[in-house]
């Protein structure tokens, strides 16, 4: 049988799926195969979709995917849901809204849990994007609930980030406060069929007015009813327009460079963390150091320096 990497390049579904699992599990084989895949990546258009739980992101992703399929493009979807910090388990339910896509061979959907810090969600998502890209998907969408730094980092993978808001949740101001608005390239006001639509439109418009620098692009606001597909064609056009705009400037390259920089840092961070916290030699050391810190025999900085100097030897 051919190598896994080669089978991914051929676009074989099972190979793509296996490769993603290896990467999620931090397998050494994943690192090996990623070396094969990287040269073939970089062609896909990457779209990040974020917003609160229940905003209609999965429904929107499903409709947008069909819109791109109509244009003959292939689509990869990464749907991320939170892992329970208590049990390590996760209920990944985004596919409920994507059943229309299941039997289309031109679409590959993967659900992911955020898993633990040390597992490194971000680096796994970088890999999964690269795997789907190398497998030849034209469009890659990443859906994530917009809370926490990890999620904001994930969204930095995207060429275009869509922030989804809805009427009546009273969370738009919270989203602004949480810094989520700063990452938007496009706002979607979904559930435009629901009461409170005018109000949230006005809120976002005034926010965009307030934050747009003179002479700069003002962030588009697209109303949608994802449930019926209304506004999806407009959203698709707006996403592609944003990419075109990027392509015309140095921003696109700068974006991608930022992504590779973040990815490199993430891989190094993960390797170092694993080296320190997974190796049993250090485990005992760390326990001992914590004892000493607790007994005030040592301060945390000196303890950290001790570990680091041993790692870097």
């Amino acid at each position: 049988m051919k190598d896994l990497g080669q089978r991914v390049l051929d676009g074989e579904q099972r190979a793509i799926a296996k490769m993603i699992t290896l990467s999620e599990n931090n397998s050494p084989e994943a690192a090996r195969e990623m070396k094969v895949l990287h040269p073939a990546s970089g062609r896909a258009q990457i779209i990040g979709i974020t917003g609160v739980m229940g905003a209609g992101k999965s429904t929107l992703v499903s409709e947008l995917a069909m819109e791109y399929r109509k244009m003959g493009k292939t689509v990869g979807i990464i749907a991320i849901d939170p892992t329970s910090p208590f049990t390590g388990g996760a209920l990944l339910g985004d596919r409920i809204r994507m059943t229309k896509l299941t039997e289309d061979e031109g679409i590959f959907i993967r659900s992911m849990g955020t898993r633990g810090m040390l597992g490194g969600l971000t680096s796994a998502v970088y890999d999964v994007v690269e795997i789907m890209d190398a497998a030849g998907k034209d469009i890659i969408m990443v859906e994530t609930v917009g809370v926490g730094q990890a999620e904001v980092d994930i969204i930095k993978i995207a060429d275009t980030t869509v922030v989804v808001l809805v009427p009546g949740l009273g969370d738009s101001i919270q989203a602004i406060k949480a810094g989520i608005m700063e990452i938007a390239d496009i706002y979607v006001v979904n559930k435009a069929d629901r009461p409170g639509f005018d109000r949230i439109m006005a809120e976002i418009e005034s926010l965009v007015d307030l934050t747009t620098e003179a002479g700069k692009r003002s962030i588009p606001i697209i109303p949608t009813v994802a449930k019926t597909g209304e506004g999806i064609a407009e959203l698709r056009a707006s996403v592609d327009e944003h990419l075109e705009l990027l392509n015309g400037t140095n921003e696109f390259q700068a974006n991608r460079r930022r992504r590779y920089e973040a990815e490199l840092i993430e891989i190094i961070r993960k390797r170092l963390m694993n080296l320190i916290f997974d190796e049993s030699i250090f485990k005992e050391r760390i326990e001992g150091l914590i004892d000493q810190i607790e007994a005030k025999e040592k301060d945390p900085y000196s303890a950290a320096e001790e570990i680091l100097s041993q790692v870097l030897k």
């Binding site: 579904q13 099972r14 793509i16 799926a17 296996k18 993603i20 699992t21 892992t83 388990g89 996760a90 209920l91 990944l92 339910g93 596919r95 409920i96 059943t99 299941t102 039997e103 590959f108 959907i109 993967r110 659900s111 849990g113």
Partner: peptide
């Protein structure tokens, strides 16, 4: 990690999902 797909799945859909989600 539980992937939940909702109602009305055909056998083909279930297998396709099982493949992609590994």
């Amino acid at each position: 990690e539980v992937i939940y797909t909702g109602l009305h799945q055909t056998a083909e859909m279930i297998v396709q999902t099982a493949i992609q989600e590994d």
